[in-house]
Amino acid sequence: MQDVMQPIGTPDGLFHDGNPATGQLGTIVSALWLNASQGAIRSTQSELLAVLAAAGVGIDPGSTTQVIEAIKKIAWGGTGAARPTTLAGYGITDAYTKTATDSQMAGKANVATTLAGYGITDALGYRGELDSAQINTATNIGIWRVLYSGYSTTLVVSDAGGSVGSVQTEYAHTGLVRWRNKTDGTTWSAWRNLATQATTLAGYGITDGATQASVATAISTASPPGLVALFGIALNTAPPTGWLVADGSAVSRTTYSTLYAAIGTQFGTGNGSTTFNLPDARGVFFRGFDNNRGIDVGRVYGSEQGDALASHTHTPPNQTGIAATVSSSGVKTLGGSSYDVLANVGYTGGGETRPRNIALLACIKF
């Protein structure tokens, strides 16, 4: 069969009548397009005639149903054949018919409804229902539903090596789960609660894990409240978690109760009731408290101390050929004349005395 023929060569692919009044020309049909149309029509006719020939249908110019009749004959077989209703009618030879399938399935087991139906012999089956009195004498092996008000109760009776063992479980609407047991004709044991979902490590029997409390204690021991440390974090960023900048600020005695318990009002009373002051470690060096050693005598714990130089003297050199003596008060006598030693010594230095250092951010643990 030929491909779809091309439309007429007008802008919209349609035929148009001419209009003498307006000077509009009609569509010009070329020999090329007519030949193409003729070829497409003949090709389609040839295809349809081939279908008729394959079905053994002769050409009848007065019939409009020959093609569909031919298709039915080819698909269903035979002259005037109806739609097949069997596998053989469609020429299928490698499938079971319904009758053959029924024959093959005859005698096969249906879906089992019991354990025994599946050949299972080592499982307890459901036996039925018992009331609260019948459970005391039940000896038939199996699983029983016990009729209790407000509880979902199950009784399991099993073979305990020649004896009959019974285990009863109860689940209350309150969420309580408990159980009891007995053997043969003995009395029931006391009710025992089944373990609920544990909420602690100990509840799961874990003895080598760290609880939240133990971790908190370890952290507190490693960095107890009141510890002051230096940090090299970026300037103007928040201090590390659990730390405050030691800048002398007044903070809440309630919010930072652990730190308040550790340092109290040692560095300031805040507003006197609800706040207290942090130590102000900005721009100063740390010095260990003397604590009666005798080096920094009279020092108050937590107090700030200004800079100072140790007491000392400066002695100018002797003048050549001039006898010199120095009194205990620091006055030096040269050739019989007295001079103030300090008046002859120059000075140097800045506004404080300090060692080489680096500026870091001092923070206090809360």
Score class of each variant (00 low, 15 high):
residue 274 T to F: 02
residue 101 T to L: 15
residue 124 L to F: 10
residue 310 A to C: 04
residue 161 G to C: 11
residue 312 H to S: 04
residue 184 D to C: 07
residue 114 T to C: 05
residue 310 A to G: 14
residue 190 A to W: 02
residue 93 T to M: 10
residue 246 A to D: 01
residue 131 D to T: 09
residue 143 I to D: 03
residue 180 R to C: 08
residue 66 Q to G: 03
residue 35 N to W: 10
residue 301 Y to E: 15
residue 45 Q to P: 00
residue 56 G to A: 07
residue 86 T to P: 00
residue 48 L to W: 11
residue 86 T to S: 05
residue 18 G to T: 12
residue 365 K to W: 02
residue 175 G to F: 01
residue 252 S to P: 10
residue 73 K to G: 07
residue 332 K to E: 12
residue 80 G to M: 05
residue 171 Y to K: 14
residue 359 A to D: 12
residue 333 T to E: 00
residue 160 A to M: 10
residue 45 Q to S: 06
residue 280 D to M: 01
residue 287 R to T: 08
residue 364 I to C: 00
residue 349 G to V: 03
residue 256 Y to F: 06
residue 186 T to Q: 13
residue 131 D to V: 11
residue 52 L to I: 03
residue 248 G to R: 02
residue 338 S to P: 08
residue 142 G to A: 07
residue 97 T to S: 15
residue 332 K to T: 09
residue 261 A to H: 07
residue 55 A to F: 09
residue 258 T to N: 15
residue 203 G to H: 01
residue 287 R to N: 07
residue 26 G to V: 11
residue 211 T to M: 07
residue 27 T to P: 03
residue 84 P to Q: 03
residue 39 G to N: 07
residue 322 I to S: 00
residue 319 Q to K: 04
residue 172 A to F: 01
residue 286 F to E: 07
residue 139 T to F: 13
residue 173 H to L: 14
